[in-house]
């Protein structure tokens, strides 16, 4: 068993687990943050994407022990002061989610995209969110939401 100390959404946590425990399972089971979803456990679907030290990464193909000392943000950490993040607002406005299962990973991925490329064109948006599979939306609403959120995030910097 190993001890994992980390900071998630600004809160310090500590847990003990086997070294083989996947970070996604640790976040969901040990920390009780079930917003991060698991859809494939081999790095393809992107539902489990979280911010790892400020950069989007798959939590299903990382070990919990590797997050010792790290700073994570999950979908639960997007909302501030009881208000939706502008990206969340845009997702709602543009019907960028249906079942909502891909949504946590999609939000984190889109946020990372907009941080690295604050005004992407449509092709860049599509390429960026290609990292996450969505079976419900055909992606149209998501593309619209990310496009709409981009200038708001730039203005809010």
């Amino acid at each position: 068993m190993v001890t994992v100390r980390l900071n998630v959404n600004g809160v310090a946590h500590e847990g003990r687990c086997e070294p083989r425990k996947l970070l996604a399972d640790f976040i969901r089971e040990d920390l009780g943050l079930t917003g991060t979803h698991v859809g494939c456990e081999h790095g393809i679907c992107g539902a489990c994407t979280i911010m790892f030290n400020g950069e989007a990464a798959r939590s299903c193909i990382m070990l919990a022990v590797q997050a010792d000392g790290a700073e994570l943000m999950t979908v639960e950490g997007l909302m501030r002061d009881g208000k939706l993040h502008p990206l969340q607002e845009a997702f709602r406005e543009h019907h960028a989610l249906q079942c909502g299962f891909c949504t946590p990973g999609m939000l984190i991925t889109a946020l990372d995209l907009l941080r690295t490329n604050p005004s992407p064109n449509d092709r860049e948006i599509r390429e960026g969110i290609s990292a996450v599979l969505c079976r419900c939306t055909g992606y149209q609403g998501i593309v619209n939401a990310v496009r709409a959120a981009a200038p708001i995030l730039v203005a809010g910097r």
Binding site: L33, T34, G35, H37, V75, L78, L97, G100, T103
Partner: peptide, 11 residues
């Protein structure tokens, strides 16, 4: 959407 966007869905 409110619950699904904030990680509070109940799957």
């Amino acid at each position: 959407d409110a619950r699904l966007l904030t990680g509070r869905g109940t799957f």
